[in-house]
Design a protein around this nucleic acid. Structure first.
Length: 473
RNA sequence: GUCCCCAUCGUCUAGUGGCCCAGGACGCUGGCCUUUCAAGCCGGUAACGCGGGUUCGAACCCCGCUGGGGACGCCA
């Protein structure tokens, strides 16, 4: 048996990726199969190497190592989709030749209009298939003219597509509810739908274990397997992790970056244990258990289908359990592997060196490098001569700007935050002080941008959000 | 709006027709222990969304309603 996770390197390593990876890995181990990591970097505008590296690092931190992947290789590589574009092109051509896909010349404006019309007419799908039966001569003419186009699949116009979900049983969707999905984008890259089907087949994936949000597009995938004449894999859709309000887990309402949990001092084994408890329980209902126990008792059909709320309080309790069972020496080792090792201290030290007179001042001047848990009051965040609601708006603006950052180094931070002065109409003095207080809880600190770089993006994000929340009128 | 998925304490869950006037865990809370705080121990709080069926019997099966979520992108 072969399973995979297929993260898209377009942002910070996500807790949902770890969740899906955990169950895939456990499934592979249980059945003596392989767990594959495939990078789905077909979105040229958003994929980055930094994101990919961060995903690798976070998964390894959790102990979720892979048998085959971009960095470790394997028999059915390459494992990075951007390196497989020729394969997708061939397959798309094959479908066109078979009459199961076609070139579509619709412009962005046309599509916008179709979406508007579809909504008015209460239609299920937006694309009206207007290029589906374009005469071959017309297609040739447009191609000769070099008109930009995409390749779309021809969904059956009636009937329904059924498939078995390992957690839910049979799911069936009317084909008329499903769009003629784009397979190849006009930039020559495949969409997820094509690439994932082609790769899963070529890589010998037997079980697709992924998040519930994919259920509605599974009929497209099933139809693609059919069009290629391939046997579809088994599908298992894991429930979506949720915010406290039950909506799909999101950075607006929850820390979702694995880097956050690592920095906050969650032990990887506690994180894994907690994630495993989302939808899964052992026969004896033990709360604390290891990956091996999950492997031993895993049964996909027994995973709960209700979306579990990601409850930080319970994660903390579990983490405390793991912490307490360490010997003092082991605890020291964990602390050093965390932020109290020379790596991290070596980054903090230069920032406070010229500001201290005794070694003990190192401790009193740096707590915010290590912990988010400092007191913070709304009044301290509002600059003099500014209204609280202005400060709130500015802080929200900063939050968004920081969310959008890829590189998180001093120079980029300065550039982005200075641009925020412009955007918010705040003076650099006022805005930077707001951010400083939000990040450190203090008005006197080492240089702001350097400090933020060392504290790291994930924790800066949660602190800025906390500050914005505090300012909310 | 259309389609799909889901539905047991605030939260994570056990429960697959009688063992359930529903069990465990987190949280909250009372007490014990203790120089303090934790930890630990003992106790309390709190749920089968609603309405119809099926059945001798329904948290468990069926239907409807309601509620929640997801998808509807040249993002994955």
């Amino acid at each position: 048996m072969r399973v995979r996770i297929a993260p898209s390197p377009t942002g910070d390593p996500h807790v949902g990726t770890a969740y899906v990876a955990l169950f895939n890995l456990a499934f592979a181990r249980k059945h003596g199969g392989q767990f594959i990591l495939r990078i789905e970097d077909t979105d040229q505008t958003r994929s980055t190497g930094e994101s990919e590296a961060a995903i690798f690092e976070s998964l390894r931190w959790l102990g979720l190592g892979w048998d085959e992947g971009p960095d470790v290789g394997g028999p059915v590589g390459p494992y990075r989709q951007s390196e497989r574009t020729a394969i997708y092109r061939e397959h798309a051509e094959r479908l066109i030749a078979q009459g199961q896909a076609y070139r579509c010349f619709a412009t962005a404006e046309e599509l916008d209009q179709m979406r508007a019309t579809a909504r008015e007419q209460r239609l299920a799908t937006s694309y009206d298939r207007r290029y589906r039966d374009l005469p071959p001569a017309e297609v040739e003419r447009r191609l000769a003219e070099g008109q930009p186009h995409v390749v779309r699949m021809k969904m059956p116009l009636d009937g329904q597509t059924r498939f078995q979900d390992a957690l839910r049983g049979e799911i069936s969707i009317d084909n008329r509810e499903v769009d003629d999905q784009i397979l190849m984008k006009s930039d020559g890259f495949p969409t997820y739908h094509l690439a994932n089907v082609v790769d899963d087949h070529l890589m010998g994936i037997t079980h697709v274990i992924r998040a519930e949000e994919w259920i509605p597009s599974t009929p497209k995938h099933v139809q693609l397997y059919r069009a290629f004449g391939w046997e579809p894999p088994a599908f298992a859709h894991l429930p979506l992790l949720r915010n406290a309000d039950k909506s799909k887990i999101s950075k607006r309402k929850n820390p979702v970056s694995l880097e956050y949990y690592q920095r906050a001092g969650i032990l990887p084994e506690a994180m894994l244990n907690f994630l495993a408890r989302m939808g899964f329980s052992l026969a004896d209902e033990r709360e604390k258990f290891a990956l091996d126990d999950l492997v031993a008792e895993l049964d996909l059909s027994r995973i709960t289908t209700g979306g579990p709320v990601f409850d930080l309080a319970k994660l903390d309790w579990l983490n405390g359990l793991y912490l307490r069972e360490l010997t003092p020496q082991q605890l020291v080792e964990r602390l050093q592997g965390w932020l109290l090792g020379s790596d991290f201290l070596g980054r903090v030290a230069p920032l406070v060196q010229e500001r201290i007179q005794r070694l003990e001042h190192f401790v009193t001047s740096t707590p915010f490098f290590f912990s988010d848990e400092f007191p913070l009051e709304a009044e301290a965040l509002v600059p003099k001569k500014r209204e609280r609601k202005e400060a709130y708006a500015a802080m929200k603006s900063v939050v968004e700007a920081v969310d959008g950052m890829r590189a998180f180094d001093t120079a980029t931070l300065e550039q982005v935050l200075r641009a925020q002065c412009e955007a918010t109409g705040f003076s650099a003095r006022d805005l930077f002080m707001m951010v400083r207080v939000a990040i450190t809880g203090r008005t006197a600190t080492p240089p702001l941008f350097e400090s933020m770089e060392v504290i790291g993006k994930a924790r800066c994000q949660t602190r800025l959000r906390r500050a914005a929340e505090l300012l909310r009128p």
